[in-house]
């Protein structure tokens, strides 16, 4: 018999793989919502890129679609919080979470399995969006290494949002409340640099947009992909890559312990 910690670790890994497999089985059983989720950002690219794009100006010049795509990558990642929320809230409301808690499984697997599944889901979403970007004329212009770093930053933001989603789901526990989240994603997205450059906004709004965590990731992606619209005089614009690391790390530092606390609170 292997030692106890080794067994524990093995079960923690195998249990979380089982739960990741469960999430994938969901996608196979219900492909339509998954496809809609993957294609919705594509629709946004077409809408903003072609419908509104003509009226948009990119500060410092440049093609609006080149400017838009990094913003849409970040929005794709932000939409993912809805999937995390729905999955965790449904399990908790339906008693599945309680069943997991009475099984001799590794408790951590419930969240690590979720996190792995959500990262895979968002990676698929980003792959679709990168392909969509290439199809509408977007390109990475600063080399593959920096492009990969940009994808890494996007997934880091997604990882941070997993913990926000889990925390909200364990607090609210109502799957229907995802509607509120679906609505709230929009003002957060619009008060960032994802669709429009902050320079074109009124001063106070520009400040909000500059410091929006989403903006940090978008600006960092523009920089790393070599797309137009990055840089500027403000501190946030000058340190976009650093902030695109700091913001998600901060979110994780706050929401990971909160989620663990909420999880333990289920037993009080």
């Amino acid at each position: 018999m292997t030692t106890l910690p080794a067994r524990r670790l093995r079960f923690a890994v195998s249990d979380s793989l089982v739960l990741t497999g469960r999430a994938l089985a969901h996608a196979v059983r219900q492909p339509v919502p998954v496809l809609v989720g993957l294609l919705f950002p594509v629709l946004l690219v077409l809408m903003f890129g072609y419908l509104f794009g003509g009226a948009m100006t990119v500060p410092g010049g440049g093609d609006y679609r080149e400017f838009l795509l990094p913003g849409m990558f970040a929005m794709t990642v932000a939409f993912g919080i809805e999937a995390t929320y729905t999955a965790v809230a449904s399990d908790t409301a339906r008693g599945v979470t309680d069943r997991f808690r009475t099984l001799p499984m590794a408790p951590s697997a419930v969240v690590t399995g979720r996190a792995a599944a959500d990262l895979l889901h968002s990676a698929a979403g980003l792959a679709v969006m990168l392909a969509c970007g290439l199809a509408v004329g977007w390109q990475w212009r600063a080399g593959p290494a920096r492009a990969l770093a940009a994808v890494g930053l996007l997934l880091l933001l997604r990882f941070a949002l997993i913990w926000v989603g889990i925390h909200l789901a364990l607090v609210l526990r109502r799957p229907e409340s995802v509607v509120a989240l679906q609505i709230l994603v929009w003002p957060v997205g619009f008060t960032s640099n994802a669709f429009v450059a902050p320079e074109t906004m009124p001063g106070w709004l520009a400040a909000v947009a500059e410091w929006n965590p989403l903006s940090a990731t978008v600006a960092a992606c523009r920089e790393l992909f070599g797309n137009p619209g990055w840089g500027g005089d403000s501190f946030a614009a000058q340190h976009a890559v650093a902030l695109a690391v700091v913001w998600p790390v901060l979110l994780i530092a706050v929401f990971l312990p909160l989620s663990v606390r909420r999880w333990r609170h289920l037993g009080r």
Partner: peptide
Amino acid sequence: ARIGLVGQHAAVDEVL
């Protein structure tokens, strides 16, 4: 490891 629980709600995955 020694109990089975059947709670008030049918705690099963509806999609699977």
